[in-house]
Nucleic acid binder design. Structure first.
Lengths: 112, 112
DNA sequence: CTGTTGTTCAACCATCTAGTTAAGTGTGCA
DNA sequence: TGCACACTTAACTAGATGGTTGAACAACAG
């Protein structure tokens, strides 16, 4: 039957955002506090325009809030959407830990 | 500085695999036990060839083992790589829970 | 005003993605 | 033998992605 979750689109956007190493790096940079676009771009050897596009992807996934501060755009991490991805993965956690009783346990607590 | 993790390629493949709803559905189907390609394809309204490609993506991410059983290919979930994605997300968990002391906590435990 | 800085936008390009249909490869069975 | 079944592969298409360069624009500095 494979029922569609209501937040399926969110998960698409979130996992897509996480699928590129530059975007994951950017999230790491932002974990230590907000940074401007230029600061975010500096460690990566792609153009500023390319970074700007990555930021858009992160914004679309809800992971990034941009606040205008003069001519600088200050980017803030919003980690909240990551909890959705985390929640999705959690359902499989029993399958990679405690391998032996995992499946039986999974089946009885979460059938379909 | 933004140092590259050794398993960066894995994370790319894993998050990419998770970024498509059909592939996430397939993982859910497999959580209840192995299934053939045909069984996996049945609930989705795309061609068998399309599902075959999705399975390849999952296989490349190490999430799927395929065992030949006569003319049937039996697909087994291997959830282990998901733990890598989980681990990556865990580092951000403090940022979406317990919002107030989160950042300070993060900074002092994980500054490098 | 003028020029410089920070950033986005537009146009373009190469490659990848997700799908299709049709043909090909094995395996099982009458 | 030979057909049917369970897939995979090949060839193709439309659209997305990830990068580029160069122009545009808004904001500050002189």
């Amino acid at each position: 039957m494979v029922e569609q979750q209501p937040d399926d689109l969110d998960l698409d956007a979130i996992f897509t955002a996480l699928a590129h190493p530059i975007r994951r790096d950017i999230l790491e940079q932002l974990a230590d506090g907000p940074e401007s676009v230029g600061e975010l771009a500096e460690p990566h050897d792609v153009s500023l325009a390319a970074v700007s596009k990555h930021l858009r992807v992160l914004e679309d996934a809800g992971l990034l809030n941009v606040e205008a501060d003069g001519r600088v755009r200050r980017c803030h991490l919003d980690a909240a959407p990551l909890s959705e991805a985390f929640g999705w993965l959690t359902r499989y956690r029993v399958l990679w830990e405690d391998r032996f009783d995992a499946l039986a346990d999974h089946l009885e607590t979460e059938d379909q």
